[in-house]
C-alpha cells in the first residue's frame, strides 16, 4: 500500500499556471499572473486566487459557485464557459489560461461584462409569462407527456448565463438579433398551455431580428453549460411562425 503522503490531497499543488487576464474596459489589455495549479481547481477559483493574493482591484462576477445563478461566465481560452464549474485541468493548454469578458457584450471592467442588452432582449422577445385569468375557473390540466409540455420542459432550465449569446456569430453580425437565450425562452412560453398570449409571443420573434436571423450554426447548443438546445428551439419557432403565417394568424 502506498503511504498516505503520496496520495493527492485536496490542496495538492500541480505546478504553476500562467494566466492572462483582461484588464480595463474595451480598450484594455491582457495582464499576466502566475497562480498555483491545484487539483479540482475551477477557473473561478483561479480568478478568486488572483484577486485575494495578487491584485484586489480585479473585477469579476459570481454568486452561487455551483452553476445555479449564471453570473460567472467568461471567455476561457477563446470559448465561453461557466467558470465556477469548469475545471482548470480540462481547459488549460500547456499550463496556460486566457480569460476575457464574455464576447458580444460591452465590457464594464476586467472580466465583468455589461449584461443589460442581453436581458433587454428577453423583454423584447416577450419572454414574460402571460397568465390566463383562471381564478374562478378550473385549473389548467398539463399533461407531462404531451409534445408541447416536453418541448417547454426541455428549455426551462436556462440560468441566463449568456454563454450561448457569447458563442453566437449572428449576434456579432446583427446587434439587433434577439439571440439564442431569449428565443429559447419564447419557445418555452409558446409551448406552455397556461400562457394566454401565445400568438403574441410568436409575433414578437417573427421579424428580422428574431428567429429567422439564425443560421443554425449551433454554437449556442454546443456551449450551453446546462445542455439546453436553443438551436432546436429556434427551428421550432421558425416552423411555428411559418405555420401561423400560412393560417393567417400573424
Amino acid at each position: 500500500m502506498q503511504s498516505s503522503a503520496a496520495q493527492p490531497s485536496a490542496s495538492t499543488e500541480l505546478g504553476e499556471l500562467t494566466v492572462s487576464v483582461w484588464r480595463g474596459a474595451a480598450d484594455g489589455r491582457l495582464e499576466s499572473f502566475r497562480v498555483p495549479h491545484r487539483t479540482s481547481q475551477t477557473v473561478l477559483d483561479v480568478v478568486t486566487w488572483i484577486q485575494r493574493h495578487l491584485d484586489p482591484t480585479l473585477t469579476y462576477r459570481f454568486a452561487c459557485r455551483v452553476g445555479m445563478c449564471g453570473s460567472c461566465a467568461m471567455m476561457v481560452n477563446g470559448a465561453p464557459r461557466w467558470t465556477c464549474r469548469t475545471h482548470v485541468s480540462r481547459v488549460a493548454k500547456d499550463g496556460h489560461l486566457e480569460l476575457r469578458p464574455l464576447r458580444n457584450l460591452p465590457v464594464v471592467k476586467d472580466l465583468a461584462a455589461d449584461m443589460t442588452e442581453f436581458f433587454d432582449k428577453w423583454r423584447d422577445a416577450y419572454g414574460r409569462f402571460s397568465p390566463t385569468p383562471t381564478a374562478d375557473g378550473d385549473f389548467h390540466r398539463v399533461d407531462p407527456e404531451s409534445a408541447e409540455r416536453k418541448a417547454a420542459s426541455a428549455g426551462i432550465e436556462c440560468i441566463g448565463c449568456a454563454v450561448c449569446y457569447a458563442a453566437c456569430d449572428v449576434v456579432s453580425w446583427n446587434p439587433d438579433y434577439l439571440g439564442p437565450a431569449a428565443l429559447n425562452r419564447a419557445w418555452t412560453l409558446i409551448n406552455d398551455v397556461r400562457d394566454a398570449d401565445r400568438s403574441g409571443h410568436l409575433a414578437a420573434v417573427a421579424d428580422d431580428a428574431g428567429c429567422h436571423a439564425c443560421h443554425s450554426q449551433g454554437s449556442c447548443t454546443k456551449h450551453c453549460p446546462n445542455g439546453l438546445n436553443p438551436s432546436m428551439a429556434i427551428t421550432g419557432l421558425k416552423k411555428s411562425v411559418l405555420g401561423a403565417l400560412l393560417r393567417g394568424d400573424l
Binding site: 477563446g78 457569447a166 456569430d169 450554426q217 449551433g218 454554437s219 447548443t221 454546443k222
Partner: peptide, 10 residues
Amino acid sequence: VAASRNHPAY
C-alpha cells in the same frame, strides 16, 4: 477564433 466554432454544425 476556432475555440467556440470548431464543431460540425458550424
